[in-house]
């Protein structure tokens, strides 16, 4: 049926108007800088004035730059927190979904870190990780464990950042799972029970597949976010950590751009990172398509 009533057409115009606001905003504040930085990636732009076209030189240097690889490795390493966070969040969501007393309180408690400023949290955790007086080591001392100087040690600085990231993201992921769990029809579980499935089996064959779209969403957004990790590193290890072992790609890009007047080179790295994220996300969508199913 074709709707061509006057009301419909007027509303359609209004709709475009409403859509226009974010679209124009996107064009001005995201698209233009994006295109500009793509151009910048092919120049020796220093951010002050000089900007000569130098072709692919920046990209060739990116792939020869040991600190680019190191920061890329650090970034990927720190994404180990993603599966850990997902498992923990799902377990928490399952527990809270059982309607135990105090559910609301727990929900609030787990959600507080999510809404707190990341810079403030980073400062708090920096104190907590302090080798001498930090909360973490004081806690470990109760069990007679002498904790390391977390942020000054090449082998502990990344795990320390991961722990913090998991803690910070837990509430958000948990809430998404909680919503997903509550939308699983109860009749499925009843049917499974009648067929003699135990708790684990119904979790494996009902709950997990039912929350899969949420899992997919979380993985995709977390990987995109994880690839751009910056603030906590900048606050907690302002020099990129011992032997540059906590520097992420974005941290390195930022140092190059704003510390060393190499905006062109930094743009090239940003472009490589952007493509990397794009490809990873594309692969995830392909995999997801293959494994997806539909309820009739």
């Amino acid at each position: 049926m074709k709707t061509t009533s006057k009301l419909y057409r007027t509303e359609q115009r209004y709709a475009y108007l409403f859509i226009a606001a974010p679209v124009i905003g996107f064009l001005i504040f995201a698209m233009v800088p994006l295109i500009y930085s793509i151009y910048g990636a092919f120049t020796n732009w220093d951010g002050l004035g000089s900007m000569d076209f130098i072709g692919l030189e920046n990209f060739i240097n990116v792939f020869k730059d040991e600190y680019f690889y190191k920061s890329m490795f650090n970034t990927i390493y720190m994404m180990l927190g993603i599966p850990i966070g997902i498992v923990l969040a799902l377990l928490l969501a399952l527990a809270l979904n059982r309607g135990i007393p105090g559910t609301n309180t727990f929900r609030v408690l787990y959600y507080i870190p999510v809404i707190s400023s990341i810079a403030a949290i980073s400062i708090l955790w920096q104190w907590a990780y302090n080798g001498d007086y930090g909360l973490v080591n004081q806690f470990l001392a109760i069990f007679g464990v002498e904790g390391p100087n977390w942020l000054q040690n090449t082998s502990t600085v990344k795990p320390a950042l991961i722990i913090m990231a998991v803690w910070k993201g837990l509430g958000y992921t948990m809430l998404l799972y909680l919503a997903a769990l509550q939308s699983v029809p109860k009749s499925f579980y009843e049917a499974a029970k009648l067929d003699g499935a135990n708790a684990f089996k119904s979790f494996w064959h009902i709950t997990l597949p039912m929350v899969k779209p949420v899992t997919f969403f979380i993985i995709v957004t977390n990987i995109i976010g994880g690839a751009q990790i910056f603030t906590e590193i900048n606050v907690m290890t302002p020099t990129g950590g011992p032997e540059y072992s906590s520097a992420s790609v974005v941290f390195y890009i930022w140092q190059k751009a704003f510390g060393n007047f190499q905006l062109g080179y930094a743009s090239a790295m940003a472009l490589v990172l952007g493509l990397f994220i794009f490809i990873i996300t594309l692969i995830q969508f392909k995999i997801n398509e293959k494994n997806s199913f539909e309820l009739d």
């Binding site: 302090n130 080798g131 001498d132 007086y133 390391p148 100087n149 942020l151 000054q152 040690n153």
Partner: peptide
């Protein structure tokens, strides 16, 4: 010692 050599700590 090594683990305590952070500036913040020596400052304190």
């Amino acid at each position: 010692s090594i683990a305590e050599a952070q500036t913040l700590d020596t400052y304190q």
